[in-house]
Design a protein around this nucleic acid. Structure first.
Lengths: 348, 348
DNA sequence: CTGAAAGCGCTTACAG
DNA sequence: CTGAAAGCGCTTACAG
């Protein structure tokens, strides 16, 4: 004798009627599950009268097909996961929005993983993504190494990396053009008449500090400007670092008339230092940052900056993912650089 | 004759070996799927030698059980969904982080839905959550009405609402205490010696504007301060609105010496207006905002504000959800108010 | 135009 | 201490 079917509706606090399944709908409409499935998918013609009957039942019962059953059957979850190091950094929500917008119309849902700065959690999220059988994975992280992608790659998950750090891995890359950002900022300062231009950098051994410093050097050199080492200071990407670095620059025998800061936080620190020194911006010294954080427009004077196109990067990653998923794109790895935008406000 | 099993590995671009299943593991370890399942779950004792063998095979094959198969079997997806109106508003990522932290250790993954301001997309996300059979749903939105929760509720999904707007629905509520925020801000200004206090509000017919205005009134009244209608101005929650409203306050016969702005953006607008009028902050006029956005600390003078505890709210929502999911909490609806924090900086 | 049945990869009530 | 088998809710190759 076969065991009676388990009655799951008695489990837990489920006191309302069981949620309808395709079986319920089929029974109520007097057709087979096959037919219900086909009116749902449209993958096979169904007689108009039958279709109408089934659709009515679906509406009456409020039936919504289970995406989990569908995923199991299809080996496709229609989910992409995005891993970011820190959601509270506004760059990442913008990235998430771009990704989501790119994949939504293709029927994909974007899962957002926030590692909160922990490398361990980043690895855990990759494993979780594998467990959940996501179709695609977008990684924006500096803690992960190529080897950490192995679980995803061997599971056949398509991976896209944001930024140049995962460059060696078997994954496409979408990135801002950090060198070009600095080149453009320098060009802007030159155009404003500056000849002695300094930079406050982040750590220069890792992206995006490296690229932005490199671009700064390329920029000043191409304009035939002074390239004294004393015009380059590390501000550690913090406001305080930017303040200190700027103070050091002002103490030079021949101080700069313009400062390119590798992010907005340091640029705001530079503004602090300039205000503290009684200098006027941009009359005495011009300042430009990178990122276009919200505060850039709110600070006084409003900060000129180069906007890093987070949302566009997310969007590009989504599109790349989609074309990989439907095999549209050739197998070779791709790197796409997304264009930034210089925003001239009151500090230059 | 039975049809041959479908070979899914030939589908698409899957050129590597198929991803291992519990069946593969069982075969390689010479045990049944039942046993593999039990070493995975620990829900039944397994002989040490057997367990060791199975675990080795799992490691060798890099086997990760499919969460989708598990969900189908369990009628539990171990997923909670969070719907927010706009991820690019920093309040929401903080909320997301708190939620995620609260549920992660219980084995739940948080799905983040960004409606991008569209009511239609908010409804679509609720339906998507139903399809995906999420166990819990956290809604932070002002566009949805109680009726929009119906699909989730009838599907047996536990719902928690953030903020007071979904109050009538069959859902628990977690919220900041908006009235109390204003009361505390007023008390702080009074303690700084102010007697003539104005407020720049947001739209007063909807939260959080309503609660904060109400609290302002309660606050000034309880201190026996003037309650002239002319001391209340609508700034529409924007920087420009805050600027204009403040300009109007300064034009009064008897201008206020302190201004409570119902959000930081308006407070920054107030700072603009005061600077424009050649007034000093806080000497001539004190300003306090609400939210503690990043820019609050970056602006000059640094803005005093009441921090709305987004992360804590998310955390509380997660805890409430978990206790509902394991039936720990009694059936009656609950409302939890999360404590805020007044941050005195340089503008008061 | 429609249906019966196998299969997706797990879990778990029975049985031994 | 362990296994065979049914079931979760879909999709789809066959068959008619």
């Amino acid at each position: 004798m076969t065991p009676p079917p388990r009655d799951r509706t008695q489990t837990g606090s489920d006191r309302r009627r069981a949620v309808p399944t395709i079986e319920t709908v089929a029974a109520a409409a007097g057709v087979s599950k096959t037919t219900v499935s086909h009116v749902l998918s449209g993958r096979r013609p169904v007689a108009p009268a039958t279709r109408a009957r089934v659709e009515r039942v679906i509406a009456e019962l409020g039936f919504r097909p289970s995406a989990v059953a569908r995923s199991l059957s299809n080996a496709r979850s229609h989910t992409v996961a995005l891993l970011v190091p820190d959601v509270t950094n506004p760059f990442y929500p913008a990235l998430a929005r771009g990704l989501q917008e790119a994949v939504r119309d293709a029927g994909y849902l974007a899962l957002l993983g926030d590692a909160g700065g922990s490398a361990e959690q980043e690895r855990a999220f990759v494993e979780e993504a594998v467990s959940r059988r996501v179709d695609g994975l977008v990684l924006s992280t500096f803690q992960l190494e190529a080897a950490d992608l192995a679980p995803a790659l061997t599971a056949g998950i398509t991976v896209v990396a944001i930024g140049p750090q995962l460059g060696e891995a078997q994954a496409d890359v979408v990135s801002a053009d950090d060198a070009r950002i600095a080149v453009d900022a320098v060009a802007h300062l030159v155009q404003r008449g500056h000849r002695r231009i300094a930079t406050v950098t982040g750590p220069a051994d890792v992206e995006p500090g490296r690229g932005r410093l490199q671009g700064f050097h390329d920029g000043v050199r191409s304009h035939g400007l002074p390239t004294d080492a004393e015009l380059v200071r590390d501000g550690g990407f913090t406001r305080e670092g930017g303040h200190a670095a700027t103070a050091a620059l002002l103490a030079l025998d021949e101080p700069p008339t313009a400062i390119f800061c590798a992010n907005d936080l340091m640029a705001i620190g530079a503004l602090d230092a300039l205000r503290g020194a009684g200098l006027r911006v941009p009359t005495d010294v011009a300042v430009i940052g990178v990122d276009d954080i919200d505060a850039a427009a709110l600070v006084t004077p409003a900060l000129s900056t180069v906007r890093v196109p987070a949302q566009e990067i997310g969007h590009a990653a989504g599109q790349l993912l989609l074309s990989r998923l439907d095999g549209t794109v050739p197998p070779a790895r791709q790197t796409v650089l997304v264009a930034h935008e210089l925003i001239a406000r009151d500090s230059t």
